[in-house]
């Protein structure tokens, strides 16, 4: 009977080892998912970043007296270009979103600009990209949430170090992004 117990233990050992390999692979997959979801935000941020010069160029011709608003957009774009890591990028993204909000709000005062087809298309494109970025930020945060929860749970906590998993930073939206932009119209005298 002893040999049967040995076989049973060996078989159970194989199953436990297989289970632990599964746990390890799962943690690696979660880590990769977090990285991928971050890269997926960057893809859209880059697209938005590419649309800014076109938007500014279209607006320049009409909004001669709104240099400050346009400069804020360009400044936000430059800051976004130099941003590193989720916190910095979130802040730069918020600044850009705020600058764009102000730009679109001010544009309301220029009927010729609003009637320009290029502007309408670019505005639609930027708004669509912002919605998609917001979705992907949520997705990223959900991935981070899964990662941060899993690495503290049993049995994941025992292999998290081996899999190179550590708590990840959430994409926190700055308080100013949730506020409406301040709009000041510089009417020509």
């Amino acid at each position: 009977m002893g040999i049967l117990i040995l076989i049973g233990l060996a078989l159970a050992g194989v199953i436990v080892a297989g289970y632990l390999v599964g746990v390890f692979n799962q943690l690696v997959q979660i880590k990769v998912n977090v990285d991928k979801s971050w890269s997926n935000i960057e893809v859209l941020e880059k697209q938005r970043y590419d649309e800014i010069p076109k938007l500014v160029k279209v607006c320049e011709g009409y909004m001669k007296y709104e240099r400050e608003t346009l400069e804020k957009v360009i400044e936000a774009r430059t800051r976004f270009l130099n941003a590193q890591g989720p916190a910095d990028m979130a802040q730069a993204g918020s600044q850009m979103a705020g600058a764009l909000k102000s730009l679109f709000a001010v544009a309301e005062n220029y009927p010729d600009l609003k009637a320009n087809q290029n502007f309408t298309q670019l505005q639609g494109r930027v708004t669509q990209l912002e919605n998609e970025i917001a979705d992907r930020r949520e997705f990223y945060n959900e991935s981070v949430n899964i990662n941060n929860a899993r690495i503290q749970q049993v049995p994941y906590v025992f292999v998290a170090g081996m899999a190179g998993c550590s708590p990840r930073e959430m994409y926190k939206v700055a308080a100013e992004e949730t506020k409406s932009p301040e709009i000041s119209f510089a009417f020509p005298k």
């Binding site: 599964g22 692979n25 799962q26 997959q29 979660i30 998912n33 991928k36 979801s37 997926n40 893809v43 859209l44 669509q128 919605n131 998609e132 970025i133 979705d135 992907r136 997705f139 959900e142 991935s143 899964i146 899993r150």
Partner: peptide
């Protein structure tokens, strides 16, 4: 179980922003 974990650990995407 691998498939089950993959489903459990993948957040649900929105259609407009699905990668």
């Amino acid at each position: 179980l691998r498939e089950e974990r993959l489903i459990a650990d993948t957040p649900t995407s929105r259609v407009r922003s699905v990668a």
